[in-house]
Every structure is written in structure tokens, then in C-alpha cells.
């Protein structure tokens, strides 16, 4: 269970998040929705340690953790941010081998399984620029999953995809919930998509 308690974030004098608390039970999907500028992405960036909140505490299964330093959370960015100089496989294996010092062989085996699950078999040795948007996103998901996170966060996963692919992403997210029991946070402005996937919907309103 992920708990965020009393999260407050200001940029200069502008209050973006005010004393926000959320709870996500294990294996559940929380969709964070709201108009643009409401602070959805900021909320996600605080949880993933990319932004330092002015106030707030984070708990995983009752134990406090530091968003900047933990191996609980994986992130799939809006624009994926794959490393263009590395092949698909290198993108996935880089962090597990360098950070966790896992043997390359094992990471590769796991990666290949996940790539196949997501219909990316045969793409291991090509570079990100050779992939379509939807494929890049799936590689980004595999890359995040390769670090064995407990929580997976998505920033606007549907914004760059055409409507047909939207359902694909929904399937993948729901699939991860079933097969891996992944706790997932999805920031989106797409209400239909949120209703499709989420166990719980958190609405964020613009404060100023």
C-alpha cells in the first residue's frame, strides 16, 4: 500500500499542491485526473523524487521512504525518454546491470520475456529512433519493470498515441496489474481512459 500524506508543493509563491493525501492499496491502479496546470504531473514528480516537495511524507506498507532514494518506484515518462544512443536491449539492461550489479545474462533473459509479452520480439538490437511511438512506450515500460519496482508511475501515457493505441496501453496496464500485481499510478487528462483502467480516481483541481 502506497500512502502520500500532507503533500504541499509551491513554485516560488504559487501553490500547486496543498496538503494532498492519497492512498493506493496493493495491486490497485490510481488514476490522477484534472485539467492541465492542476498539478497532476507535479504530484507524480514529487512521488518519483524529481521534485522536492515543501512538505509531505511517503509510506510504502507503513514504512516511510524517500522518493529520491528507494527502489520501489519505476517511471514511464510522457515522452518516454529512452536513451537514443543505446539499443532497445541496452536501454533495458543498463540500470539493472550497473546499479544493481545483476548479471547481464539474467537481466537479458527477463527482458526478452517481457519484450515478447508486449509484442516487441525481434526489436532487441535496434535503436529507439527506429521504433514507433507505441513501441517506444512499451520499451519504456519494460525498462522501468526491469528494475523490479513495486509501484509503476505513468505520466500522460495516452497523450502521444492515437485512439487505437490507447486501448493497447490500457490492456498493458491492466495486464501488469494481473500478472505482476503491480501498484500503478497513472496521470492522465483523458477521463474515459481513466475510467477504463482505474480502481480509484483522484481528481486534482487547479489551486490558483
Amino acid at each position: 500500500m502506497l500512502e502520500v500524506k500532507n503533500l504541499t508543493k509551491k513554485f516560488e509563491d504559487r501553490l500547486v499542491l496543498n496538503d494532498l493525501s492519497i492512498t493506493v492499496p496493493d495491486d490497485e491502479i490510481l488514476a490522477i485526473v484534472g485539467p492541465s496546470g492542476a498539478g497532476k504531473t507535479t504530484l507524480l514528480r514529487c512521488i518519483t523524487g524529481l521534485e522536492t516537495p515543501n512538505q509531505g511524507e511517503f509510506f510504502w506498507n507503513g514504512k516511510q521512504f524517500d522518493p529520491k532514494n528507494n527502489d520501489l518506484i519505476g517511471v514511464v515518462f510522457q515522452d518516454y525518454q529512452l536513451f537514443p544512443n543505446l539499443t532497445v536491449m541496452q536501454n533495458i539492461t543498463l540500470a539493472p546491470t550497473m546499479v544493481k550489479k545483476e548479471p547481464l545474462k539474467e537481466v537479458k533473459k527477463r527482458a526478452e520475456q517481457m519484450l515478447t509479452q508486449l509484442g516487441l520480439q525481434g526489436k532487441e538490437d535496434i535503436y529507439p529512433f527506429q521504433l514507433s511511438g507505441g513501441q517506444k512506450q512499451r520499451v519504456a515500460i519494460v525498462r522501468a519493470m526491469a528494475m523490479n519496482p513495486k509501484i509503476l508511475c505513468y505520466d500522460e501515457p495516452t497523450s502521444a498515441l492515437d485512439p487505437a493505441l490507447r486501448d493497447e496501453v490500457a490492456k498493458i496496464i491492466l495486464g501488469l496489474k494481473q500478472s505482476e500485481g503491480m501498484t500503478q499510478l497513472v496521470v492522465t487528462h483523458d477521463m474515459d481512459f481513466a475510467k477504463n483502467i482505474a480502481d480509484q480516481i483522484e481528481r486534482v483541481k487547479a489551486l490558483s
Binding site: T48, G49, L50, D71, I73, G74, V75, F77, D79, Q81, L82, F83, P84, N85, L86, L94, A95, M98, V99, R143, A144, M147
Partner: peptide, 29 residues
């Protein structure tokens, strides 16, 4: 792009690792 640094950060790559594996190859190009 800043996003490359953030992407490396959420994967817990250290600064020297990020510079060596991600940044330098892109900069060289």
C-alpha cells in the same frame, strides 16, 4: 535534454554513470 538526466535519475544511475553512458555518447555526436 533534461529528460535524459531525469530518466537516468529514476533508474538510479549515479551521476558519473549517467555522464559516461548516456551524456558523453550523445554529446560526442
Amino acid at each position: 535534454p533534461r529528460g535524459q538526466f531525469e530518466s537516468a535519475k529514476v533508474l538510479h544511475l549515479s551521476y558519473p554513470q549517467t555522464i559516461r553512458k548516456i551524456v558523453i555518447p550523445q554529446v560526442v555526436k
